[in-house]
Computed example of a mutant assay.
Amino acid sequence: MMSQPAFDPFGEPVPTAEPSAGTGRAAKWLKSGGTGLFWVLVVAIVLARAVYFEPGSFSFERAFAWAQGLLTLVQGLAI
């Protein structure tokens, strides 16, 4: 059964696309890498804003201790 033709906003027919061949390992790796990079940038921007706008309430010693505690927790869960 043929699907109905699609049209763009200007009335031109849109060619039907075949399923993407990029559903392999490389596409999954790129998606995971992009997602991870996004969240790393989010954390870096939030921390930079905290340091810049609230210099008295943020200490690197507390942040380092928190990061060590988080790493210890993650390592404990992985074992």
Rank of each mutant, 00 (worst) to 15 (best):
E54H: 13
Q75P: 00
K31C: 13
A44H: 06
S3D: 09
R49T: 11
G36W: 03
P9K: 10
L73G: 01
F38S: 06
A63V: 06
G76A: 10
A6W: 02
F60G: 12
G76V: 04
V40G: 05
A6D: 04
G22A: 14
S3A: 11
F58Y: 10
A17F: 08
V51L: 14
R49H: 05
V74N: 01
F58S: 02
V46E: 03
V46Q: 03
S20Y: 01
A26T: 12
K31N: 12
S32D: 14
F58T: 05
L47R: 10
G11S: 06
A65F: 08
V40D: 08
A65M: 06
F10S: 07
V42Q: 02
W66Y: 08
F64E: 13
Q68T: 04
F64S: 14
A21P: 00
T35M: 15
S59M: 01
F38Y: 13
V74E: 06
T23C: 10
S3P: 06
F7W: 09
W29I: 14
T35D: 15
S32T: 15
V43A: 14
Q68C: 05
D8L: 04
M1A: 15
E12A: 15
I79R: 04
L70W: 08
T23Q: 10
F10M: 09
M1C: 10
F38W: 13
I45D: 05
Q4T: 12
G76N: 02
T35R: 15
E54T: 13
Q68Y: 01
A17L: 15
G76H: 02
K31V: 13
G36I: 01
A78C: 00
A27G: 15
L37D: 11
E12W: 09
P55T: 03
W39V: 07
K28V: 14
Y52H: 12
P19A: 06
L30C: 10
Q68S: 03
R49K: 03
G36Y: 02
S32I: 11
V51Y: 08
V51M: 09
G76I: 01
G36E: 04
R25C: 13
P19L: 04
L37M: 12
G11Q: 00
M1W: 05
L71I: 09
W39R: 07
G56R: 11
